[in-house]
Design a protein around this nucleic acid. Sequence first.
RNA 1: GGGGGAGUGUCGGAACUGGUAUACGAAGCGGACUUAAAAUCCGCUGCCCGAAAGGGAUUGAGGGUUCGAAUCCCUCCUCCCCCA
Length: 800
Amino acid sequence: MAEIPECDFKKIEEKWVGKFAASKKSDSPDKFYLLEMFPYPSGALHMGHMRNYSIGDTYKRFLEMKEKSVIYPMGYDAFGLPAENAAIKSGIHPKKWTMKNIEKMMSQQKKMGLSYQWDRLVITCEKEYYKWNQWFFLKMYERGIAYKKDAPINWCPGCQTVLANEQVVAGKCWRCNSTVEIKHLKQWFFKITAYAEELLADLEKLDWPEKVKIQQRNWIGKSEGVRIKFSVEGERVLEVFTTRPDTLWGATYMAISPHHPEIGNLAGSKIGEVEKLRRLAVSQNPEEKEKFGVELDKKAVNPATGEKIPIYAANFVLMEYGTGAIMCVPAHDKRDFEFAKKYKIPIRVVINPPGKNLDEKKMENAYTEEGILKNSGNFSGMPSGKAKREIARFLEQKGTGKTEINWHLRDWLVSRQRYWGTPIPIVNCPRCGLVAVNERNLPVELPENVKFTGKGNPLAEAEEFVNTKCPKCGGPAKRETDTLDTFVDSSWYFLRYLDSKNDSAPFSSEIANRLMPVDQYIGGIEHATMHLIYARFFTKVLRDLGLVKTDEPFKKLLCQGMVLKDGAKMSKSLGNVVSVNEILDKFGADTARLFILFAAPPERDLEWNAESVRGCHRFLKKIWNLAHHAFSTQPVAGISEEEKKELHFVTAKTIRNVENDLARFEFNTAISAIQEFTNFIQGLFGKHGNFDGFREAMKTAIKLLYPAAPFITSELSEKFSISLKTFPEYRKEVLESHEKEIIIQVNGKLRGKLKIKPGTSEDEVFRKAIEIETVRKFAGEKIRKKIYVPNKILNIVTGG
RNA sequence: GGGGGAGUGUCGGAACUGGUAUACGAAGCGGACUUAAAAUCCGCUGCCCGAAAGGGAUUGAGGGUUCGAAUCCCUCCUCCCCCA
């Protein structure tokens, strides 16, 4: 027998990396847009990326074998804080840092064998890209979708800078530990709320995991209720929003945000305490912290009962939600109940559970369900549902309320007081106010010569950037120094991929209409709300601008699970990180990809296991060796008719299973099917040596394995002239005509097995079954019933 | 607090719409090859009773529906994730 060369993974991978990276676009008319969430260029791929891309590339190669024209791009989400932090820390310019990181990550991606269409590359920090962010901003500004308003921000007095929510840890700055203050600044917003209804309704159209849709529904948070006016002593009015107007008679106090504009008029002698409360309320989670309140001097009037009720300034009422004031019904709301107990406010039951009578003196918890009204004037005795409508009508007639739809979704705050982002193309003119930069003067370039001190926004200090002329009057004016949230960049990158070199438009509408939507999007669940809502919103805005026709950017979504080590998420602090480079160097890309796909189904978390990785490596070597056995000698031995039939059947079954599994992203079972098939071939080879049909079987195995392990299979295909262009096919008849195994049960317990020709009658199956000794023993004399599922199972039920 | 998901051998996991529970891989044990080891190949391997043939129980716990339940329904326990 000929000597089998050792499988040199390193050499094979080096040879094929270049060829994969240069992969050509197919011209099949059957397009498929396959997209992976592009990474932030932090400097190195982690296992999460590796998993994401292994899934994507395997699916891409499978689709190509099924003769689809696949669009498979890659890019980098290159603006963002880490680059700026690196600049503050080590003095490297964010651009240099970012571009170097991109280079490193790209080389890792190539090493993994990912066959991206690199000519589509998008890097969001390049002016060729962010120019169009600015262009969209101007279009949105024209239409009132981009606007500026006062908003609270987290301000660190130590760093003299604005902090994102995640940079505030327990009320302190993450970097310098100063106590964070709430400041009010003029901020830019995108009016995403104008699309709330459509964003909610169109979820129906999407083939997304139900849990992501639920998260989005909650995030959008549509609630129908009533806006009610409570009059206050001194002829002022406080408005509240409630989804439970049926509990109005039970409202025994009100609570308002310490930031409420009316607070000064209501607090009276308590203003000092309110100030204290405001400071306390800084950037902490309202749900987690203890509830505090200050009773104000003025009292409100419950419009239903006419009673005077106290008003509290409370730290759990947010100005950003509803009206910044709420009516409190302690008997029927958990939070109101706790607060009322703490401050000894009366509790009054106005809703009874059906068939029960609650007693406020004995209640230990609020009753928050709906029920039957009591103590509610004319509405007593009504069920909650009806009472909600009737009370709303009653208030409308009285002029003290109106029905309203409220949203949890807020407008998207896009201002960042940061350098490393897209400059907002607006000029502040002392005479003309806010003026848009002229479209033909885009891009407003980010100046490179700035200082990174960690204090304030470097852009605001860049004199030659800030000082400009007003586009309207030509007088001296100052540029906007806020930059755009990086979620703007990721809201349309998938459109730029389709036409990445276009310098006269963000993309060609003709191309976008032909290739959108993305047929399959793959990424992490952590983007279930933010990114995936912003991108949907952006697509709808672009549609309304006439740039695309599609309503939704991502038709199908796959959210992959996390990669764990020792039961925990890989993280530096736990010291359980497995490095991508190490794994690629030690075992090679094929092994790494195969393990990632094999160890767990994509949606589930994946436990990294070094031993199991070795198993995948072993399997690849087995394929290599068997292929060489098959092709380096001539077939010498025939196999029996029986074995030949079985081989054909197993081959067909394997092709069918692998194809179905790959189409459904069930890579783990696809790979196990190939392994089973390989074991079967190996069994025949062990028995007969190079047998008739060995080569054909190995060809099939190699083709099936190609999407997941492209390097070794490409090498073998070249060596032994195997075409990897198309997916193997099988004949249905081979599967249908094969003999079936029937399970024989007695009273639901397995008592025997039977091989039959397909289509054997029930009577005959029964006759044969009863001949089996164990079956006869357990079935006994009295057979009560027979259940027969054709080609599958016969259950014999006995006794009385 | 709200929302979602998962509990199956020693481990990762399989079981299509209710029809052989534990495929495939790992680990373990035994054997072949070898001076030896690695690599490779072959075989065995969830639990209890039994020498064996065989039988019994078993999918986090308990109950239910069904000829038949890991899968459907109810109650409970544990773990994880996301959002706030």
